[in-house]
Design a protein around this nucleic acid. Structure first.
Length: 269
DNA sequence: ATGGTGGTTGTACCA
C-alpha cells in the first residue's frame, strides 16, 4: 500500500478586523478545509486577538499586533514553528520611526510562511508612498538573501501587496490614472520581489479577465465587478514547483459582514 | 454630498 501524497492547503486573506470577522473567518477556514492561513489587517493588539476561537478548531496561531492598525497572523493546523516578527531591514514609519505590525512568519510543515501587509501608499505625493517603496525594496533584498542562502528553501510570501502589477489587475485603467497601486514605481517594486526569485502561483490557475481579490466597499464596486487584484501568493522556486492548484474565493466577498478582500487559496501537493 | 462604506476609536484616522 502506498500513501497518497500529502497535500497542504494554504491561504492568504486581508480580513479587515479579526474581531468583527471572527465568525466568518472560522466558518470559512472549516468550509475551505485550509491548513495554513496568513491573515492581514487583524486591527488588534495581541491581548485582543481571539486565539481561543482558532484553538477550538485545532489551529495554532502566531499573531503580531501593536494597536488598532495593521496586524498580521499565521494560523496553522499542520505545525507552527520558529515564529519571526518582521524581516531583516524592514523599514519603520511614524514619528519617531518605528516598526509596524506588517510581517510575521512561521514554519508550517517545512514551509516558511510569511503574512505580509504592504503599506498602502495613500497617494502619489504622500511620504507614505516612499515608505511603501522602501518596504518592498527591503523585502526583495531580504528574500533574495534567503534564496541565496538556501536555493532549495520552501518560502511563501503571502499577503496584501497593495499593488496591481498589470493593467489587467484593475477594473479600469483610466480610473487609476494618477492613483496609487498602479504607478510604475510601485509595479517595479513588486517586480523586484519577483526578480528576487518568487513566483505568483495563483495567476496561472486564475487568469480570467476580471479576476480580482479586492473590491472597495463604496460605490457598489463588488456588485459592479469593479475590483483589483492586489493579494498574492509568491513562492520560492522549490515550493512553486509543488503547487497543483489555486483559486480566489470570490463567494466570501458576498453578503453582509464581508471583508473587502476575498481569500486566496493554493494547494501544495 | 465628491470617501457614497466600513473598521476602530473617540469626536479623527485609516483603507
Amino acid at each position: 500500500m502506498s500513501e497518497p501524497a500529502q497535500s497542504t492547503r494554504i491561504a492568504t486573506w486581508n480580513v479587515n478586523s479579526i474581531r468583527s470577522r471572527i465568525d466568518r473567518v472560522t466558518a470559512w477556514l472549516e468550509r475551505a478545509d485550509v491548513d495554513v492561513l496568513a491573515i492581514q489587517e487583524t486591527k488588534a493588539r495581541d491581548t485582543q486577538f481571539p486565539f481561543d476561537r482558532f484553538r477550538d478548531l485545532g489551529y495554532e496561531v502566531a499573531h503580531h499586533g501593536l494597536n488598532q492598525w495593521n496586524g498580521v497572523a499565521v494560523v496553522s493546523r499542520v505545525g507552527l514553528d520558529d515564529v519571526q516578527v518582521g524581516f531583516e531591514g524592514m523599514p519603520g514609519w511614524g514619528d519617531p520611526v518605528a516598526a509596524e505590525a506588517r510581517a510575521i512568519s512561521a514554519v508550517c510543515r517545512g514551509i516558511r510562511i510569511w503574512s505580509l501587509y504592504v503599506p498602502n501608499g495613500r497617494s502619489l505625493d504622500d511620504p507614505h508612498l516612499q515608505y511603501k517603496l522602501s518596504w518592498l525594496a527591503a523585502l526583495a533584498t531580504a528574500g533574495r538573501g534567503w534564496l541565496a542562502a538556501d536555493p532549495g528553501a520552501e518560502v511563501a510570501l503571502l499577503g496584501d501587496w497593495n499593488v496591481a502589477p498589470t493593467d489587467a489587475d484593475v477594473w479600469s485603467v483610466p480610473f487609476f490614472e494618477g492613483r496609487t497601486h498602479v504607478s510604475p514605481d510601485e509595479r517595479a517594486a513588486f517586480e523586484a520581489v519577483v526578480d528576487a526569485g518568487f513566483v505568483d502561483v495563483v495567476r496561472p490557475h486564475a487568469s480570467e479577465p476580471g479576476t480580482f481579490t479586492y473590491w472597495d466597499y463604496t460605490q457598489l464596486r463588488f456588485q459592479k465587478r469593479q475590483g483589483m487584484r492586489i493579494d498574492f501568493a509568491l513562492c520560492s522556486p522549490a515550493l512553486a514547483g509543488r503547487v497543483v492548484g489555486a483559486a480566489i474565493d470570490r463567494e466570501e466577498r458576498k453578503g453582509k459582514g464581508a471583508s473587502d478582500h476575498a481569500p486566496v487559496v493554493f494547494e501544495v501537493g
